[in-house]
Design a protein around this nucleic acid. Structure first.
Length: 662
DNA sequence: CGTGGAGATAGCCGTGGACA
DNA sequence: TGTCCACGGCTATCTCCACG
């Protein structure tokens, strides 16, 4: 212990209850020795008797003390016994009392050990579980990372798909250009293509990048490109093909002649997965060549148009990368070498154009032969000279299609080329003439396909012309005149049949079944969509169905009109064929004419009121009242004209009867 | 002094607007 | 519908500069 400080000592002195005396009596000082005993000491010896008496007294005193001690001892024994008993009892009680805690303690220890063991096992399990969970957590984290990446990828792809970029860099992609062309082809004006594309994109749930598409100007460029691509492809297909047929026709639009040209050839379909080079898979392809303006529709102009087109295709293809890759060129005459036929109007201009084409092709083929002969046969110089000597100015003028004056001033180079041309032709002709006839025909194959409509029309016209003559020949009254409203009025008003107005009205009017069919056509199937009976009735019926029964249905007129139209068409078709037969035969007899004539007369009389027209209301009134309506009447008339009587007439002549009536 | 990268520049080309 | 022209992107080329 650290010695007390002065302040502590003072504090102790102040509060020490023992006072100053205690200060000197240090508790650490051992107590002083006890004072010596005060027993008095014997100074003189006693007698024996006294001594005995004293001893007896002492003995008695001791015996009394002994008895007291014994009694005390006995008390002590008793007290001890009682205490022992009590203690034992207490001991037993305590022992008993301690037994339970001990037992409990033992049980608790056991439980503790068990609990510890269980806890240890639980901890092990928990550790394993934690490890497992950590692994799962790790895996989950990785999965989340991968899922995020996948999601991002999908979102990117979705964004990519959702947003269509029509450009590659600053240039519209081939797909975009194709789309522009397609929309234009489908009738969308170039200026509205952008709006159409953006609108469609919006409807389909996608977006066009920058919300922009081609301007009108660029759409037009794409269309032009498409035309050039088409020409390149056509040039290639012509060069690949064994031969092709060209078809053409013309029309006028706002006073300008327009010529259209198509080409039919065997070519690849370009379907995905189909081998383009496998010729066995090639099918007939119809290729658009051009629609080009022309000064007129003459045969010469048509031929010149084809020449221009062939030159253009040969030029475009030859200058194309495609030709460069295939290391092939096309010259304008290749077009003619491959052309094996033409489809044209069955008219004079078409025939003229075909003739010019055939001549040109012959020239190309013969000169080819001439060149080939000169190259292969290595003709002797003498023969060549001889042939050249035979070339006259007329030959040159004819070949070059030039006048004598033009020939005279022609530069020597051009003249040499012309001479060479004539020489090739002369030698080619010699070679050609030496070929077998079959080879000659094959070399010059150039087929003409006339317009079937023209053939059809011509057959009918020839038939009509012959029929008209029959009335006069056999002195048969002609069918009722089916005059126009104006002519009909003139005829009705005329006082004399020899007046100029009457004559003109009659001459300009026609009659007979063909005219009737024509009228039926315009009456029933008028192309303006309003005036034909079927249209008028359709409009009314639609309204009537709506008003009467609240039905949103078509206004189709039940039955008769549709059937009538069909029968009319069928009958007309059969009439054509019969008339075709008529142009080749004159075997019809007068009686046949008369019976057929009666039918036609009947027909035209029954239907004469057609000229006055039938109002919509009359028609519908009759229909709704369940009466026989004009349609039924018409149908009956046509049946007479085109069905029953033709069957009758055919029966007499085994389906080869020549119609001579109408 | 050669090489390669970065920046500047000219020319080509595609595009779209203005205009007739 | 065609022509003209401006604009902007792309590319080849040039120039400059740093570095080994």
């Amino acid at each position: 212990m650290a010695p007390r400080s002065q302040r502590q000592k003072q504090a102790h002195k102040v509060w020490d209850p023992r006072g100053a005396a205690a200060e000197e009596d240090d508790e650490n000082t051992p107590p002083s020795a006890p004072p010596p005993s005060q027993h008095p000491s014997s100074t003189k010896p006693k007698s024996l008797k006294a001594q005995l008496i004293e001893r007896d007294a002492r003995i008695a005193e001791l015996e009394g003390l002994n008895a007291i001690l014994r009694a005390t001892l006995s008390d002590v024994h008793q007290t001890h016994a009682a205490a022992t008993k009590s203690l034992k009892s207490e001991h037993d009680r305590l022992t008993n009392r301690n037994f339970l805690p001990s037992t409990t303690n033992k049980s608790l220890g056991s439980q503790k050990r068990k609990a510890e063991q269980a806890l240890t096992e639980e901890i092990d399990r928990k550790h394993k579980r934690i490890k497992s969970v950590r692994q799962q957590l790790y895996a989950s984290k990785k999965q989340v990372e991968r899922a995020k990446k996948s999601l991002q990828k999908v979102q990117d792809e979705y964004r990519k798909l959702k947003t269509w970029n029509p450009k590659i860099g600053n240039t519209y992609s081939p797909d975009a250009r194709e789309l522009g062309r397609q929309l234009t082809e489908d009738g969308c004006v170039a200026e509205r293509v952008e709006h159409a594309v953006l609108s469609c994109a919006k409807a389909f749930g996608i977006r066009v990048k920058r919300d922009e598409f081609m301007s009108r100007r660029t759409v037009t460029r794409a269309v032009d490109e498409g035309g050039k691509y088409g020409e390149i492809q056509l040039g290639r297909e012509i060069m690949e093909s064994e031969g092709f047929v060209e078809s053409s026709d013309g029309t006028t639009y706002r006073g300008i002649n327009l010529e259209s040209r198509h080409i039919a050839l065997l070519g690849p379909s370009y379907e995905p997965g189909v081998d383009v080079s496998d010729r066995s898979l090639w099918t007939r392809q119809l290729r658009f060549l051009e629609v080009a303006p022309a000064l007129d529709h003459t045969g010469q102009r048509q031929f010149e148009g084809t020449m221009e087109a062939s030159e253009r295709i040969a030029d475009v293809y030859t200058r194309s990368p495609l030709a460069a890759r295939e290391q092939r060129t096309m010259e304008k005459n290749d077009y003619w070498r491959k052309k094996i036929g033409e489809n044209k109007d069955h008219a004079a201009d078409g025939k003229k154009a075909f003739k010019l084409s055939a001549e040109y092709k012959k020239d190309v083929v013969l000169r080819d032969l001439g060149r080939k002969t000169m190259e292969e046969a290595d003709l002797e110089t003498a023969i060549l000279l001889l042939s050249m000597n035979e070339i006259t100015n007329d030959d040159l003028m004819q070949t070059g299609k030039i006048s004598y004056e033009e020939l005279a001033v022609m530069p020597s180079g051009a003249k040499t080329a012309l001479i060479e041309q004539v020489l090739e032709r002369k030698i080619g002709e010699d070679t050609f003439n030496s070929l077998p006839e079959e080879d000659q025909q094959n070399a010059l194959t150039h087929v003409f396909g006339g317009c079937c409509c023209h053939k059809d029309l011509n057959a009918l016209r020839y038939g009509m012309a012959r029929v008209q003559r029959v009335y006069d020949t056999h002195d048969i009254p002609k069918p009722v005149l089916l005059a126009t409203k104006a002519n009909s009025a003139v005829i009705d008003l005329a006082t004399a049949t020899d007046g100029a107005a009457f004559q003109r009205a009659v001459e300009s009017s026609t009659r007979g079944a063909i005219k009737l069919l024509s009228l039926l056509g315009s009456l029933l199937r008028h192309k303006d969509g309003q005036r034909g009976y079927q249209d008028r009735s359709s409009i009314f019926m639609r309204e009537a169905k709506k008003a009467l029964h609240d039905l949103e249905e078509s206004g189709q007129f039940p039955g008769p009109i549709q059937e009538l139209i069909q029968e009319t068409e069928q009958g007309l078709g059969r009439l054509y064929f019969l008339l075709l037969g008529d142009t080749r035969s004159n075997e019809a007899s007068a009686s046949t004419f008369q019976s057929a004539h009666a039918c036609i007369q009947n027909l035209t009389n029954h239907t004469r009121h057609l000229r006055r027209g039938v109002s919509k209301n009359t028609l519908l009134q009759k229909y709704t009242q369940g009466e026989s309506n004009p349609c039924r009447l018409l149908r009956g008339a046509v049946e007479i004209a085109l069905s029953r009587d033709f069957r009758l007439l055919e029966g007499k002549h085994d389906n080869r009867f020549t119609i001579g009536v109408l």
